[in-house]
Computed example of a mutant assay.
Amino acid sequence: MSDRIDIPTADGAMPALRFLPESGTGPGIVLFQEIFGLTDYIQARAADLAALGYVVIAPEIYWRLDDSEIDYSRDDAMQQAMGLMQQLDWPTTVGDGVATVVAARNDEHIRGGLGVLGFCFGGGLAFNVAASTAVDVLVSYYGSAIPGLLDFAGDVTAPSLHHFGLADDFIPVDVVERIHAAVDREGVRFETYDGAGHAFDNPDPTFHHAEASAAAWRNTVDFLATEFPATR
């Protein structure tokens, strides 16, 4: 079950989708998209999290752009998505992420804390948001911006789970190791997956690695149940 809501920002209302668990209330998770936007895949993961008992809010991060539509019938869909991401101003985007956290804290359906979770572009955004405002938990899937954000690692104090594939053309193994060294502390879980490339959780055959996707989701469910349970 999902509905559309507005997130207040200094520049107007940012649209978002809210997914409710069967109970109608629960701890909150702000879910940040990949570069492709709030696709069916991201909405399916939001529904998966809601089925676990969380209230999920997924902001439309491209809301400031004049044209954020991607034509998936074209061979250059990836280039279209990269072009959209490159139009974003990163500090403003982080501010929109923080605004979503603030709005979620005031959401009548959210009870029992708030976490952030993101995929790819959204994994880096979730990391930066967790460094900028207090959250109860962070889950980042192959956060593509994290290599440039490691100076903020000490500001991320929430229990955290990071997922990285070891066959990622965008984040090579030596960079994964550097990220691990920077974020490593008590309360941080760092999982890597042999043979998995970038965006391995995305079901598109171009990206999908079935074993890594299933293992990472099991690890995510286990981590959330331990560090941020939906029922307390």
Rank of each mutant, 00 (worst) to 15 (best):
D6N: 14
D11E: 15
G12H: 11
A13L: 09
L20P: 00
E22I: 01
S23M: 07
I35A: 03
I35G: 02
L38N: 14
L38Q: 12
Y41W: 15
A46Y: 07
D48W: 03
A51V: 01
P59D: 06
I61N: 06
I61V: 15
Y62P: 13
W63T: 09
D66G: 01
Y72M: 14
S73A: 15
R74Y: 01
Q79Y: 05
M82T: 06
G83W: 09
Q86V: 03
Q87P: 04
D89S: 14
T93E: 09
V102C: 03
V102K: 15
A103K: 05
G112H: 00
L114T: 10
G123Q: 03
A126S: 13
A126V: 00
F127T: 00
A130W: 04
A130C: 06
T133P: 09
T133R: 02
T133M: 09
V135M: 10
D136G: 08
Y141E: 00
G148C: 04
D151H: 09
F152P: 00
G154A: 14
G154C: 08
S160R: 07
H162E: 05
G165K: 01
D168V: 00
I179N: 10
H180Y: 04
A181R: 12
G187S: 08
A196H: 05
H198K: 08
F200E: 04
D201K: 03
H208K: 07
A214N: 12
A214I: 01
A216D: 11
R218K: 13
R218P: 00
D222L: 09
A230L: 07
A230G: 15
